[in-house]
Design a binder for these strands. Sequence first.
DNA 1: TACAACAGTTGCATAAATACAAATGTCTGG
DNA 2: CCAGACATTTGTATTTATGCAACTGTTGTA
Lengths: 157, 157
Amino acid sequence: MTSSRDAASAAITATVTSSRALLGIVAQSMSGALEELSLVQFRLLVVLDSSGPQRMGDLATALGVHASTLSRTVDRLESGEWITREVSPESRREVIVAVSNKGHGMVAEVTRTRRRAIAAVLQGLDPADREAVRLGMTLFAEAAGEPSAPDMLTLGL
Amino acid sequence: MTSSRDAASAAITATVTSSRALLGIVAQSMSGALEELSLVQFRLLVVLDSSGPQRMGDLATALGVHASTLSRTVDRLESGEWITREVSPESRREVIVAVSNKGHGMVAEVTRTRRRAIAAVLQGLDPADREAVRLGMTLFAEAAGEPSAPDMLTLGL
DNA sequence: TACAACAGTTGCATAAATACAAATGTCTGG
DNA sequence: CCAGACATTTGTATTTATGCAACTGTTGTA
């Protein structure tokens, strides 16, 4: 007979294997961006793109880096016109950073590429299997919950 | 009615969401290693651990970096005793790099942590749902195939 | 209004990753 | 056996990321 432990283990192994494939897709989708930006810079762009305009200090906290480190990274991104940096209308000692159109376009491009790559994989399945993937992925995502921001930052995502 | 395009799109979205969760787990599993090693160094360790001992030149090619760059990175890993570096028994001009016990242990530890984290997530599902995840993940992994090495390297995996 | 708290930048300093060029040592074919 | 090819390392230089300390300017408050 097959024990429930074997069944659980099979699910784990399948998930690990699948995570490798998914990781490959994610990495590949980022390769274009990483020709123009460092991983750290791209990470900043993603955070800013998803959270909206931020004060320097808050952004430094969100990224877990020193304010001076952020200031330099923002220098570089600004000179590449990926982001904008403006004195806050609220307080002249605060500086608000926001993604530029160019910056948003890059993030969107990566997202689009990722989605397209996943779509291409699913294309290779018949509808019933595709539905099985949808179900499995949905169940897993629900059980896992949202990844924490600090976790994602480890890999610069 | 629900078109087949909607169904496909739902599968894509579910997979994208799931990939985020998986990425979080992967990143978290690496966080311990990244306190002691840089991403580049860890990447080298993983490649070496999975492909076995390599000549410097081949390793540089596999990692897509200049030989001199590799030489320096190997210096650092060697001084931390993560790897060994020995003159090849075949030819005295060749140098063979291999993971040390310590290095292998680190990679294994990350792998173990990852597996455990995934197991914990699956633990939260009842057997039927877990089986659905197993099936979905298996189908996806089969359809996606093995990720290419260069792709994985983008993220240092 | 003066002073303390705050936000950000700038002046160091360090470490890592990177590549190119040059040097060193080893092989190999003629 | 020796000249060129080959594998690796070393010298040099650049870029990025990083943090601490000091500085500048702004705000709030006693």
